[in-house]
Write a protein that binds this DNA or RNA. Structure first.
Lengths: 274, 274
DNA sequence: CACTATAGCTTCCCTATGGAAGCAGATATT
DNA sequence: AATATCTGCTTCCATAGGGAAGCTATAGTG
């Protein structure tokens, strides 16, 4: 590693005098301090490799207790803005491409967001599991499954095509209700019994099949985003398997890395203890 | 909302007696407690909607101080496992599809990971900005840019095709070095001056063009994952624009939601203060 | 000179304590 | 009976203080 400057000398940046804590604000002290330091990073006052003032210094400079400063540093570390090295110091972390993360929340917003897209149930029948499906769901071939196909439409047209296999279990009444309604609640954590314990997701780009392209009103050949999901029930057995097929030109996930000057929104990053 | 049970009665689950804190362990107390509670969620002892024991109760039960318990709850909240409601209690949060997040780290691993794929520089010339590129980079058309094309190959064959436009600035020596090397350092936060302040990423599915398909050795028509990136320098001006084009069948992002019984790995989630 | 000990800094952990704000149910009042 | 108040719980915030472990540079020792 190179040498670190404790007091970076930047003639090109007019560093504003350090903001101070407002004791009367509704915003908690720790949040204020987090915001202040983030601002300094956003303004380029603090740059990657620079050493953050030591915790003791921060205590004196802002007049807060050590515990509060500790918490602030923890949060900044969780946010990936800063990295602490035991015995050496805390340093501003350079931006990496790998910091970017794409949240599936966008897909959820699309269904239940501000202008909730309509969900049309195309089919819902009981079928026997074929080989591949049985393998995915960890059941025997021929096992009775609920087969569902849905189409999610926005104003501009169809966006997403959803296929799902549900293990048929008469003891789970919610499944019946879920078929009845055309919404995707259950998958999206609406009301009702929590059935899903955990799930495995994957995302990839695929070529749309003829049927799929027709449903999505995309002239073939067309590309789509395929989001596969496998959910497990509380007995740790697979409960549902399916995938979303989204028109590539109508669904797009975005992400930010680093801190821009305008949007001071937090970025999802690793948590406190790996 | 329905009614919450403080002491859930589950005959089907043999709840083990609550693990206790090992004072001599290297693992910090707060981390142990986080692990213990995560385990209880994984084992189904605690289920969505259930109320976590109050902080005071946790203090007594595990013999730790309130501040430590507070920290534990904070971490669990950051991880999206629990949600606290002021004055009411802390409750286990149900799993939602939107929790899933796909980390671009996978792409970074692909380049600089265990078996580092080779990066071949196909082209590196200076061009004038066309209209679209000028718009993206916020410069005038005709502006001198460095145009680069790279191919990332794994053992199985080409995986990723990378195109990038860099604003030409003689005052930035690193750019010269970056062209010389075939690696993608600079983009991936290798050594050298930190140039990138922040960036905007997006991911979508596209149809590969003929040239692209040929380079990636995919018989057209083929789908690909397109990861676009726009990076900003410290003067807040766009510095580079480009995109990765990855064969859909050779790059796949995965994610987990909820806590499975085996893998007790943490999941990326929102941070402390939004 | 080469090597070792030490002092002073750093991050990091944990405790004990006090108080604010919010919710819910019981009690008292109108 | 309906309304208001109060009490006990909850999550949260912040403080003060102590100690462990790790790094680094200096002073001391062979």
């Amino acid at each position: 590693m190179g040498t670190f400057r404790k007091t970076p000398d930047r003639g090109d940046v007019d560093a504003p005098s350090p903001e101070s804590i407002d004791r009367d604000s509704d915003e908690p002290v720790y949040a204020q301090l987090v915001r202040i330091i983030r601002r300094q990073v956003a303004d380029g006052v603090l740059r990657p490799g620079d050493q953050l003032p030591s915790e003791a210094q921060l205590c004196r400079r802002y007049g807060v207790s050590p515990m509060t400063v500790r918490r602030v540093v923890n949060i900044l570390s969780d946010q990936g803005i800063v990295v602490g090295e035991q015995g050496r110091g805390t340093f501003i972390r350079p931006v990496e491409l790998g910091d970017a993360s794409f949240q599936l929340q966008r897909l959820q917003d699309l269904v239940g967001g501000d202008q909730p897209a309509s969900v049309r149930l195309l089919q819902a029948t009981i079928v026997g599991a074929d080989r591949k499906t049985a393998e995915k769901l960890g059941c025997v071939p021929g096992q009775r499954l609920i087969y569902m196909r849905r189409l999610i439409e926005a104003e501009a047209g169809p966006v997403c095509y959803h296929v799902e296999y549900l293990v048929y279990d008469p003891a789970r009444p919610v499944v019946e209700a879920e078929i009845a309604t055309t919404s995707l609640q259950g998958l999206f954590g609406g009301p009702g019994q929590p059935l899903i314990k955990h799930g495995e997701l994957s995302i990839e780009a695929v070529l749309l099949g003829d049927d799929e392209a027709r449903l999505l009103q995309a002239p073939p050949p067309a590309a789509g985003l395929r989001i596969e999901h496998l959910f497990f029930a509380y007995d740790e057995r697979p409960m549902s398997w399916g995938w979303f097929l989204c028109r590539g030109d109508r669904l797009r996930f975005g992400s930010r890395v680093g801190i821009s000057q305008e949007h001071l929104a937090p970025e999802g990053k690793s948590v406190d203890e790996p």
